[in-house]
Amino acid sequence: MNEADVTGLDTPQQVARVRNRRGEGGRLREDIIDAASALLDETGDERAITLRSVARRIGIAAPSIYRHFPDQPAIMLAVVEREFAALADHLREAAQHAGDDPRERLHALGRAYLRYAQDHPGRYRTMFGGLWMPTLGDNSLTEEQLTGLGAPALRILADALADCAAAGQSTVTDPELDAVTLWISMHGLAHQYAVIRIFPWPAESVADAIIARVAKLTSR
Rank of each mutant, 00 (worst) to 15 (best):
H97I: 10
G59C: 06
L40Q: 03
R155A: 15
R82V: 05
L87F: 02
P121T: 11
G110L: 07
I156N: 02
A108W: 00
R155N: 12
G59K: 02
L77D: 03
T126E: 06
G150I: 14
H107S: 12
L157H: 07
R111G: 14
L136I: 15
A98C: 10
Y124G: 01
A94G: 08
L146R: 09
L114S: 09
R155Y: 06
T43L: 10
M76C: 11
A160Y: 10
M127R: 01
T43W: 04
L109K: 09
L136T: 14
E93K: 13
A153T: 10
V80L: 02
A112W: 01
A55F: 00
S140G: 15
E143D: 13
H120T: 13
P121W: 00
V80K: 00
E144I: 10
R123D: 14
P152E: 13
G137K: 00
I65M: 07
G129W: 02
R82H: 13
R155V: 14
E46T: 15
T142G: 10
S140Y: 04
T135Y: 03
P152M: 10
D45F: 04
R103Y: 04
Q118W: 03
Q145N: 07
S140L: 11
D163S: 15
Q118I: 02
L146K: 02
M127I: 15
L106R: 03
I49A: 03
R105V: 10
W132H: 02
T142P: 06
R111L: 11
N139L: 03
D45C: 05
T142D: 09
S140M: 11
I60S: 06
A62N: 11
V54F: 08
R57Q: 12
I58S: 00
L114H: 04
L149E: 01
E46V: 13
A85S: 11
E93H: 14
D159M: 13
L146N: 02
C164D: 10
G59R: 00
P134Y: 09
G59W: 07
G110R: 01
I60M: 04
L91N: 08
L131V: 03
G150A: 08
L161E: 12
G150R: 02
L109Y: 09
S140K: 01
I49D: 01
D71V: 08
A160K: 07
